[in-house]
Design a protein around this nucleic acid. Structure first.
Lengths: 160, 160
DNA sequence: ACTTTGTATGTTATAACATATCAATAGTGA
DNA sequence: TCACTATTGATATGTTATAACATACAAAGT
């Protein structure tokens, strides 16, 4: 990644294809099953650098005959999150594809409130200062949520 | 603050009283109205260093005849959050009293998954590295959510 | 006192997000 | 093939949050 905080990728179609291929490779390597629903769910998330709600995903899946009840979407999303192919954005109760899976990261998200774009950074924040503070207090961190909401570069310009 | 990340306060009853008094003072200073429902909601949150769901709060309010419908709790909680007397914990969809209101902070939370205790730190994290990263990308941060889930010192000991 | 205005509350209904449970099925390894 | 496990399908429900509208009520001006 040349741009650690990318609000755009050079070629999104390539970006998608690559990430999908990586997911497939990882699954067959580790013995996970990227079933049709799961695969399609990942494609749906990859299609946009936005966070989608579970019901948004469900609506798309359902339109393609891939299941119509909430658990279908939640199971697929949970699988992707556990496998490291997607993340949950807690501030939005929504999900987004991971843009650098495999890397052992505790991601940071920059969420644009105007265009809903989500950028994934890896600032090492939780390993650094937060980790230090926690260790000092004797707290053992298992998971971190770091999310910033605001305006992305594009929307800042539009506002001006 | 001697202990920036306090998992306990020396005397919780004093802690509560002080914070309530601060809230009252702030309200009359700024012209906000700490009505019975709002005041009681703050007391409820202050009663424990835990995050409570809106419906937990509602149940307690309701038992005291202070309103029985969801909006009652949500409005009171929204007021407290806006006024800076409480925070929403996004990872839990729950609310907790702010332990150092007035200070201009972008807080960090350490959430124990075993005892549900929430500690509020102010590591300056979002002003530091995260802020730098965002500025570099041209992103304008308006709000940050920094939450770590894991085990607090007490529960680490119990586990061992 | 009386009206105006704005803030807060009450009430009903529903949107949005998430999970429990259990039966049916398909893939996998002995 | 059989047993085992993971996955899917289906139904129902639980949980969190807000929309929409009506009413109460306090502060400020006349």
């Amino acid at each position: 990644m040349s741009d650690p905080i990318g609000f755009q990728c050079a070629d999104h179609s390539t970006c998608m294809t690559t990430l999908l291929a990586q997911a497939e490779a990882h699954c067959s390597a580790v013995g996970l099953r990227l079933t049709p629903v799961r695969r399609r769910t990942l494609e749906i998330l990859l299609a946009e650098h936005r966070a989608l709600g579970a019901y948004d995903v469900l609506a798309l899946l359902s339109a393609e005959g891939l299941g119509s009840q909430p658990p279908v979407a939640y199971r697929a999303l949970d699988f992707l999150v556990k496998a490291g192919f997607a993340h949950k954005i807690e501030a939005l109760n929504a999900y987004t594809a991971c843009v650098h899976p495999g890397e052992d990261h505790t991601p940071t998200f920059l969420i644009c409130r105007a265009c809903q774009t989500v950028a994934e950074a890896d600032t090492g924040l939780s390993k650094g200062r937060l980790g230090d503070a926690a260790r000092a207090a004797g707290f053992v961190i298992e998971r971190t949520v770091v999310e910033a909401t605001g305006l992305c570069p594009d929307c800042v310009q539009k506002a001006a």
